[in-house]
Design a protein around this nucleic acid. Sequence first.
RNA 1: GGGGCCGUAGCUCAAUUGGUUAGAGUACUGGACUGUCGAUCCAGUGGUUGCGGGUUCGAGUCCCGUCGGCCUCGCCA
Length: 592
Amino acid sequence: MRTHTCGELRSEHIDSETTLCGWVDSARDHGGAVFLDLRDRYGKTQVVASPEGGLELVEQASRLRAEDVVRVTGRVAARPEGTANPKLATGEIEVRISSLEILNRSKTPPFSPGTTDLPGEDLRLRHRYLDLRRPQLQKTMILRGQIIKTMRDYFAEHQFIDVETPVLGRSTPEGARDYLVPSRVSPGRFYALPQSPQLYKQILMVAGFDRYVQIARCFRDEDLRADRQPEFTQLDLEMSFVDADDVMGMIDGLMARLARDLLGQELSLPLPRMTYQEAMERFGHDAPDLRFGMELVDCSELAAQCEFRVFREAVESGGRVRGLNAKSAAAEFSRKRIDELTDVVKQDFGAKGLAWFRVEADGKLWSPIAKNFDEAWLARLAERMQARAGDLLLFVADAWSITCKALYGLRKRLGSDLKLYSPGTMHFSWVVQFPMFDWDADQQRWVAMHHPFTAPCNEDVDLLETDPSRARAKAYDLVINGSEAGGGTIRIHDNVQQQRVFDLLGIDAETARDRFGFLLESLQYGAPPHGGIALGIDRIVMLFAGLDSIRDCIAFPKTQRATDLMTEAPGEVDRRQLEELGLRVLPITDKR
RNA sequence: GGGGCCGUAGCUCAAUUGGUUAGAGUACUGGACUGUCGAUCCAGUGGUUGCGGGUUCGAGUCCCGUCGGCCUCGCCA
């Protein structure tokens, strides 16, 4: 139908005949001549209908509106002196058309793909086909394709085998809430959509595949966030006869390739690594944003010696007093803005309050609570915080975990408010040696921090018996710009050790056998040491594209309530469908 | 489940903080125009202020509920 795309023609094509197809991006009707910008995914080209082509042609062109689909034929011509458009790649030329065919008319669109005032996201999602016409979204989807292709190439070069695993699986007790699929043939029974292909890929290692990779769709029925969708895509892989370094090294290579090919950025390898413990101490979070400093400073020792009860008692009751120094930010943060920060820290992270000091020109600390401290102590605090005139010091005195959350939240917010990093910067690193377990106070039991198949660090194996809280796992998370881009572990390949971990987690033998007996059984038939990782592709695309929302990286994303505004999924089903499945929907009673 | 922001013309927004007939830009419709490229100029159409209730002489504005979108804590790796 066409000889060229709308992004293709240049001066060298002048005087040749061409046929283009595309959408009318804009139409400028001058009465005599009509200028059309024709758009397709490759670009835009200006085509001109003028009386030389016939009055009927001009008349036809003048009736065109935005998003009509047309096919035009004409001669490529240089634009008249002074009318070239430097904003278009094809701006040196235009197509003087001799014929115009309307392939399809468009209703007046609710918004134009070229709009600068982006409409509300609900409207964009409802008319996703229009939103996806926007160059920005097309660019992101193209980038996504390139990232996936690079991944596939890379792993093929490294002898990985792409294996598909089932989407209809069975529900596992731990982890996220499952999406369930009722079975018609086995009434009352349910499949679960995979949260990840975890168990299958371990079985593939037992089966001797040695290196497995898959681009796998995963499902988790949990509440959504800007960077979380109920169905998402993972680059999932598993390797045999490896330790954590081997897996991380493999991903290091992938990241270097991606950064070089897609960002033009050379990474120096190996990527930096930090232990979980260090990350929590220095940044209060297991996925620290290392694009800027402003690290947390522990002032607990000092606080224990001060007169201020809030500080002293926080330490005496086993908590911490930690702070951070927002360099040169005192002027920028009015009392009102600090109050806002205080609200965030209290409401979102459960902190009791936020203490703050402004560093005066003479280096002294000023604060509404300064009267609670003697001057010598304040001087020591200033020194510990490396305070300089104009700095703003913020402190949280609370339980360890609350100081982590609150200061992490503050640091993240200040980092972006104070523009402590430039938007184009990308920082890749690893966080390693996560704790094996978390204590669940509600259920009074240990829960696996990653998943129950994670192997402990060799030197911590005995801690499983003596002090599980201190046992560290062979776990590693890939962190990009303060986002968890992926995570993996070395797995337990020994049936006895696996049983021991289940015991510790309070998963009794019967449950274990019922839910993943097949895995335990397979481990008894010569399972090789193995481990792997899964990378969140949607997030990686988001980070590489410099976007804030994962929805902008997925062609057809869901809303925060996990609905699709275009298809209106989830939808109701016929009574007959339910009957076939042996299901009955309970009446929705309020507040059960 | 909790906290917060938002919802006014097809779209993006405004409406002097409770006051008379809810405006602008854009889109759309009609007209003018042969060098525009966010075309321009003239004219016009377009409103259940998300929905329901309440307070008030009077509600886009205040209150309660509800629906929807977003951010976030919990949740989730």
